[in-house]
């Protein structure tokens, strides 16, 4: 529990620092196109790396995870909201595990 609270404080700090530092110190536009492009791609790369392959091990059995992932991909392709995509894949996994066991 103590470790969790320390983790939360550290997370808050590393979320706040990138928000506040440029606001305090930088009054000019970043010159480096490379750096600006690098920063632009961070969310896509980070989300991709965090999702796969970790998603395959998120439900206890890979079969339900793969089908749950497929459902999430299809719903996301049709640009459904976050909650809808999440609930869609949860229900899919739940039904598959119910059916198999």
């Amino acid at each position: 529990m103590q470790k969790t609270i320390i983790a939360v404080i550290l997370m808050a700090a590393v979320t706040y620092i990138p928000r506040v530092l440029p606001m305090i110190f930088v009054k000019e536009r970043l010159k480096s196109r490379f750096l600006r492009s690098f920063l632009y791609y961070v969310p896509f790369a980070a989300l991709g790396a965090m999702t796969f392959p970790a998603i395959l091990y998120s439900t206890g059995d890979m079969a339900s995870a793969v089908i749950g992932m497929a459902v999430a991909l299809i719903l996301a392709l049709f640009e459904r909201g976050l909650l809808e995509v999440a609930v869609g894949s949860i229900v899919t996994v739940y039904l598959i595990q119910l059916f198999v066991h």
Partner: peptide, 10 residues
């Protein structure tokens, strides 16, 4: 358990 990853996909 899959909720988080489904949201990342979204």
């Amino acid at each position: 358990g899959i909720a988080l990853y489904a949201m990342f996909i979204a």
